[in-house]
Simulated scan of single mutants.
Amino acid sequence: MVDVALSGMTRAEAVGQHVRRLIAERGLRPGELIGTKTNIRESVGVAKATMNEAVRLLESQGVVVARPGPGGGLFVAQHDPVVKLGQSLLTVGGAPVSVADAVVVRELLEPRIIVDAAKHRTQDDIALITTQSAALTDVVDDPNAFVHAVWELHRTFARISPNRILRETYLSMLRFIDAETVRISSVEEEAGHRRYKQGRLRLHQDIAEAVVAGDVSAAADLARQHSLTEE
Results as ranks from 00 to 15, higher is better:
24 A>S: 12
167 R>P: 04
57 L>T: 08
59 E>L: 10
218 A>S: 06
142 D>K: 09
36 T>K: 01
228 L>I: 05
217 S>C: 03
59 E>C: 12
148 H>Y: 06
136 L>T: 07
220 A>W: 01
52 N>H: 11
60 S>W: 05
98 S>I: 08
51 M>F: 06
190 E>G: 09
24 A>R: 14
117 A>I: 07
141 D>F: 10
115 V>N: 07
201 L>D: 00
66 A>E: 15
223 A>M: 04
114 I>G: 04
22 L>A: 09
140 V>G: 01
145 A>L: 10
50 T>G: 05
63 V>W: 07
172 S>L: 06
66 A>R: 15
79 H>V: 14
32 E>L: 04
180 E>N: 14
119 K>T: 15
83 V>M: 02
78 Q>H: 09
200 R>S: 05
61 Q>V: 04
149 A>G: 05
62 G>D: 06
184 I>A: 15
167 R>G: 05
168 E>V: 13
21 R>Y: 14
9 M>R: 14
219 A>P: 00
179 A>H: 08
217 S>D: 09
96 P>R: 02
116 D>H: 15
129 I>C: 07
34 I>Y: 01
90 L>M: 09
93 G>I: 06
83 V>G: 00
146 F>G: 02
76 V>I: 10
92 V>K: 08
77 A>I: 06
2 V>W: 14
87 Q>R: 11
57 L>C: 06
167 R>H: 11
183 R>Q: 15
178 D>C: 08
24 A>N: 10
29 R>E: 10
206 D>C: 02
99 V>G: 04
193 H>A: 08
44 V>F: 04
48 K>N: 13
23 I>D: 00
158 A>S: 02
22 L>G: 09
25 E>D: 14
82 V>A: 07
87 Q>P: 00
202 R>P: 00
